[in-house]
Design a protein around this nucleic acid. Structure first.
Lengths: 253, 253
DNA sequence: CGAGACTTTGACCGTAGTCAATTTATGTGG
DNA sequence: CCACATAAATTGACTACGGTCAAAGTCTCG
């Protein structure tokens, strides 16, 4: 993939290239510079994994979209999460066997090894890295709730709302509209549904006037209202809904 | 919950109390001692969360089972993961709002804050903590594949196989049999299914002679054979099954 | 214009959910 | 030790969400 095409990709957000990072106060400029020296470019469609030999290392996604995925032997595929600019991922080590990292668009990566050590050491303040990792886990939890307990319609809305918020945080949402480099097939593999059903669900949402989607762009109409219909981020602070009874031999399976 | 009842809980595995830890070479004895001074006991059924005030802290589960869970406003519930002895979890900080930690049995916890700093600093060797966290993420990925792409029958087997391996690693499996403090309802909430369907699936598996389950104990008949029918740990090393085409405006939604 | 990939549609099927009742297991108090 | 209370497990009847298969329609690019 030609670098020129790539440049087009990130243009228009040049100011916000660092938005995902600057947003969080703890990342100082020195570290940021260290990023830039180590930037790597990866072409859309490429699969990424560190040498299985070396130790695990952390990278920051500077621009573009990545997908974390797994293929089952029979062809089924599940996408665990999407990584957006500012997100952290680990590659290398024994990671590669269970999970693949795929560039959905042209992508810029920065090594965060040095930063990692620095951040881990700096205990006094909330380290940027720790916070980043915490959010990542939170997103995995959201993903589990989506595919575990939400209906197809809810899943789609919940997922789009997550993207909306994450992209908004790095300045990539204008007037409730953002771009998504996803086909309906990828959509399906994220949400654990079939392509056909994703298609029908999207059409239903369109008919209901809840969103506009097509040509790689999404507009959410009244995002806040959608949030409640999709159980998005409105979880009760836990523990209010159901009581937990100790599980003893008496009441075990 | 009386300490005596509790002691019964961990008896029989006293030798293996530390199995989950000793198993991994990097944990030295000094750190282990530090654990013991900080051990906390929690009664079955209790909900655990650090003060939302303080910073996030890491704990190690020394004995018993914990569940990480979320309740949706309408009563639906999803259990993200089960924590077994030797596993690490974070509590406190902003964690509490999105995820609850519940003691399924009486439980012993050890604070790993000090260890955390030490381990993070010790970069030369694979730190125990880092490895522990990596495995945790791997389990979340497995969970996502289970509920995203596996059938009910596959989910149950895959889940039981995971427990089998994790419990085996800490010496809690004898003759392919282990104890599980789970009701069918909890089972359902882990696997994203209804109780009724869990019940029917278990009965089918019993009829097929694949396992024995009841009274809080499970026996897997021919675990290795089951693994292939449940797509357990037999994922292709990624990238062989399907090609990835760049997603551009052309072929996006 | 033609090729290839993606989207859309229709017909049909099957897995899993829901509701409601019954049975079983484990306690508990008399 | 028995009757009763409670929570789990189980069953049946019915529904529906979502999957599958196959064909037709669209879009973009070369």
């Amino acid at each position: 993939m030609a670098p020129s095409a790539h440049t087009v990709m990130i243009r228009g957000s040049s100011a916000s290239k660092f938005a995902g990072l600057n947003d969080v106060q703890e990342l100082d400029v020195d570290l940021a510079r260290r990023f830039w020296r180590a930037v790597e470019r990866v072409a859309a469609g490429a699969q990424i994994w560190g040498s299985t030999e070396g130790r695990q290392r952390l990278i920051v996604l500077v621009s573009g979209w990545l997908a974390e995925t797994r293929n089952l032997p029979d062809g089924r595929r599940q996408i665990f999460s999407l990584l957006l600019p500012g997100d952290v991922a680990s590659i290398g080590g024994s990671t590669g066997l269970n999970r693949g990292l795929v560039a959905l668009t042209n992508v810029e990566l920065a090594d965060v090894g040095a930063l990692g050590a620095a951040a881990a050491a700096g205990e006094g303040k909330e380290s940027w890295l720790a916070e980043s990792i915490r959010r990542r886990e939170e997103r995995l939890f959201d993903q589990i709730v989506r595919i575990g307990r939400l209906s197809a319609k809810e899943r789609v809305l919940h997922f789009l709302l997550e993207l909306y918020h994450r992209l908004d945080a790095i300045g990539l949402v204008k007037e409730d509209t953002f771009r998504i480099p996803l086909t309906q097939e990828l959509f399906a593999d994220v949400l654990g549904l079939s392509v056909v059903h994703i298609n029908r669900t999207l059409q239903q949402l369109r008919r209901e006037g809840l969103l506009t989607i097509g040509r790689g762009a999404v507009t959410l109409h009244q995002p806040h209202k959608l949030a409640s219909t999709a159980c998005y981020q409105f979880e009760s602070p836990f523990g209010e809904a159901r009581s937990w009874r100790p599980v003893t031999r008496r009441n075990a399976i």
